[in-house]
């Protein structure tokens, strides 16, 4: 119960820090929108083409820029802060789980903010869109966990915002495939469950990795 309360408080603290700094939602989100805007300039403004590649582009931007959301500066504990948390009896798993929860919520907001941008720019076919209600949280949770893991692995290193994503990107591949294929499968009348199951599996693997890896990744000095 104490651990749960600590987790909630840490997540709340992270969200409050983001609300004050705005790095994820006021900086990274517009940057992602710019990426969506650039692609038609490069490949041409052919409406059927853009309609076809729109959903895929949206997910590529969400995955790559989403990792930047998880590696935002306010999601870094300085050594004195880690020492403080440790001396308050906060377990490393609780600390990172709280961070992952906050990051997942921010990622969900990030995804939702980019949806209208992608719709406006690419006008994708609306088939299978209700499945997004499941896909968006699954991607946000998986990416939040992976990004937290990346942040812990690259903590305090030069180039952590580049090194971090490189370390965990492969596990984002099943998320990318699931996110793009599930609504596509539904649109074709197939059951998208296998893809959702795949994404859930990745989420669980990431959670397990965080659970087992966190105690090894906490350094104070």
């Amino acid at each position: 119960m104490t651990a749960w309360r600590q987790l909630v408080e840490i997540a709340r603290k992270d969200l409050r820090l983001e609300a004050r700094s705005g790095e994820a939602l006021l900086v990274t989100t517009p940057f992602g929108a710019v990426a969506l805007l650039f692609v038609p300039l490069a490949v041409g403004t052919d409406t059927p083409l853009l309609r076809g590649i729109g959903p895929g582009l949206y997910w590529v931007v969400v995955l790559l820029f989403g990792l930047l959301v998880t590696l935002r500066t306010s999601a870094v504990d300085t050594p004195p802060q880690i020492a403080l948390l440790r001396l308050c009896g906060v377990h490393s798993v609780v600390r990172l789980a709280g961070r992952a929860a906050a990051s997942a919520l921010l990622l969900l907001a990030f995804e939702l903010l980019l949806v209208p941008v992608a719709v406006a720019l690419y006008d994708p076919a609306p088939h299978g869109w209700p499945w997004l209600l499941v896909v968006l949280p699954l991607v946000a949770a998986g990416l939040g966990l992976l990004g937290t893991l990346a942040g812990a692995l690259a903590q305090g290193l030069d180039g952590r915002t580049t090194l971090g994503p490189v370390l965990v990107l492969p596990l984002a591949v099943p998320l990318l495939l699931g996110a793009t294929q599930a609504p596509a499968a539904a649109a074709l009348g197939h059951a998208p469950w296998p893809w959702l199951l795949l994404m859930l599996t990745v989420d669980l693997i990431a959670a397990l990795a965080l659970l087992l890896g966190a105690p090894h990744l906490e350094e104070v000095a």
């Binding site: 893991l149 692995l153 370390l167 492969p170 596990l171 591949v173 099943p174 495939l177 699931g178 795949l198 599996t201 990745v202 693997i205 990795a209 890896g213 090894h216 990744l217």
Partner: peptide, 17 residues
């Protein structure tokens, strides 16, 4: 930690592709 994670993810990435 990363050496373990890097290898464990190979089958799932491969299967999904």
């Amino acid at each position: 930690v990363f050496g373990v994670l890097a290898f464990v993810q190979v089958p799932i990435v491969h299967m999904s592709v």
